[in-house]
Design a protein around this nucleic acid. Structure first.
Lengths: 335, 335
DNA sequence: TTGAAAGCGCTAACAG
DNA sequence: CTGTTAGCGCTTTCAA
């Protein structure tokens, strides 16, 4: 035995071996009525003995459904994505669906390629975290013969969306920071879009939520926004920050870790001198000290809802509504 | 537009619309010889205009290859798995393959289900991190009509294996701990198999490597093995451990974090009182203090090699050899 | 250069 | 109860 030397057996083979027609074999295999117990028994027995397995792609050709969902994500590095991918897989498999997983690496062109190829594979629906922004692309997606569900990063009202309220989440984060007594707040935002074709919906909603919350906080609050890749250098205005207690709200836990690492190397103490808050609440970090204050998203439920929506649309239901699930402030030790 | 209302167009439609035969359409689409530039142009033009896309599953039926790889992993929680999944996806996609991702949740029965369903989908090869141990299962896998590549956890010599040398890695970890001056070492091992059907190859190799290295270290070294789920309680012999400097080698970074968290809550200082070492070297933890000493696996290269092997076997090459890639000690601040 | 026909493996509809 | 036929969408002969 050296792995994969077997020879596949077809329903036609089965028919020949049992001396019946293919139709009868089919009846036995999917125990449908209109077949005598004897013949069924015989067919089932030889099928089992020979390890017959129905060819799902042939089946899908006639059934018109492939029982697979196309999933398009930027990567699996960020815990949010691996969590949502896991959740989608779980839910899909439990309902008899497979998932084709494709990663775009944050490249809008790559995303198009992925979608195009998945469409060629005739997936029954698409679950898409889009990083692409482009009216033509949207009408292209709308013109596909399969339902498209967007997740995490909204594309347009035309497609069902599953995600959190990023605007409110950022606002709540700011609110939490304020409630901890900070009056000097810096928001570390992802850089603005490099190209027109980038979809930064979630990031811009967060930024807006942050700005508005800071504005509402009124005169007593000083604030900064940093959105450049050299943010660590920018933070070396920390001499300045250290003057009086300031807090840094980071648009992701990973950035928060980098910031904390950087601050630590500068001898800044957290949270006594500078407070830090993340965004995403990576599970693994629950075991790390100091525990990072953050905003948690229900990634597993997002994945479940995305699959729900996909299956609903597959089964022809047109009365979908977006699913905005609740975020949650995670109180840690860094504020 | 409301997402997925388009109607798919077939090569037959194309033929009718252009007033040619399906065969001619095919020649145009895959620019094969035997067609006049004119007709080709016309066909290509209408194909583009109508958004024709070849149905890959129909194509696969006649071609005999689905251009998809089945990937079976325990979960995506552990960074090692999400990293290897990402790497497999990257490499596969670059070579024109899709991946069906399935997760077993560490359940041997679930694993069988996944493999069985993937086989039904006629994937061209299987990349499998197996948690199942069972001679029947192995011969079942060997009897499949597709190649099986094992990754991370060896199944048997019958299947190509891509992984690291767990035995040596554990030995090196012990060696590193010794080199840091520790003479009292505790190894935190995953629990032994609960059922006969569990494949704990990697874990047992690590344990063996650890034991042998400790034995070789000789008389001057005291050691303990803990392999029960209540390991944190067991660690509360730390009053004892604290007597003289001891080190805890954990079979995974996550355990190491838990241990450190636990020790911290007991007021034990790391590494001055107790040293801790992990296994896996999760990338995100590079930004966490104290930086965890650990053993790194080249997950991305493992994924790449697994895809290589899969494609080689798909293309009929039988002269495979296992790919044992190098691990690396990551010097952190916890030892 | 093009068309017609057969077939991949399966299911569904209609006869018998 | 069972067989035959047609067809899913494509590719691949083999004729014309």
């Amino acid at each position: 035995m050296s792995g994969g030397i077997g020879i596949a057996i077809t329903s036609k083979d089965l028919a020949a071996l049992c001396g019946v027609s293919q139709g009868t074999v089919d009846r036995a295999l999917h125990n449908r009525p209109g077949i005598s117990p004897k013949t069924r028994e015989k067919i089932l027995e030889t099928a089992a003995r020979l390890g017959y397995r129905v060819d799902q792609r042939a089946r899908s050709l006639v059934k018109g459904r492939t029982m697979t969902l196309g999933v398009v994500l930027p990567d699996l590095e960020r815990r949010f994505f691996s969590e949502i991918a896991g959740s989608i897989e779980d839910n899909a498999r439990q309902r008899g669906y497979f998932i084709y997983l494709t990663l775009t690496r944050w490249d809008p062109d790559e995303e198009f390629t992925c979608v195009e190829r998945l469409a060629g594979m005739q997936v029954d629906a698409l679950i898409l975290f889009s990083v692409r922004e482009d009216p033509l692309y949207e009408s292209y997606l709308g013109g596909l013969s399969i339902p498209v569900i967007t997740v995490g990063n909204r594309l347009s009202q035309a497609f069902p969306f599953v995600g959190i309220d990023d605007y409110a989440a950022a606002g709540d984060a700011v609110g939490y920071i304020l409630s901890r007594g900070y009056r000097r707040i810096l928001y570390l935002s992802p850089p603005p879009a490099l190209h027109d074709s980038e979809n930064i919906y979630a990031a811009s909603r967060r930024l807006a939520g942050c700005i508005d919350a800071l504005r509402q906080a009124g005169r007593g609050v000083e604030s900064w926004i940093v959105d450049t890749p050299d943010y660590l250098m920018k933070l070396d205005m920390i001499g300045f920050i250290r003057e009086r207690r300031a807090a840094i709200l980071c648009s992701g836990d990973l950035y928060a870790l980098e910031v904390m690492y950087h601050l630590a190397s500068r001898g800044v103490r957290i949270p006594s001198e500078v407070g830090v808050m993340g965004f995403e609440a990576v599970d693994m970090l629950r075991h790390v000290r100091p525990a990072l204050s953050s905003v948690a998203f229900p990634a597993d439920r997002l994945g479940a809802r995305a699959v729900d929506l996909a299956l609903q649309r597959i089964h022809g239901r047109e009365d979908w509504t977006d699913a905005i699930l609740e975020h949650r402030i995670v109180e840690g030790e860094t504020l």
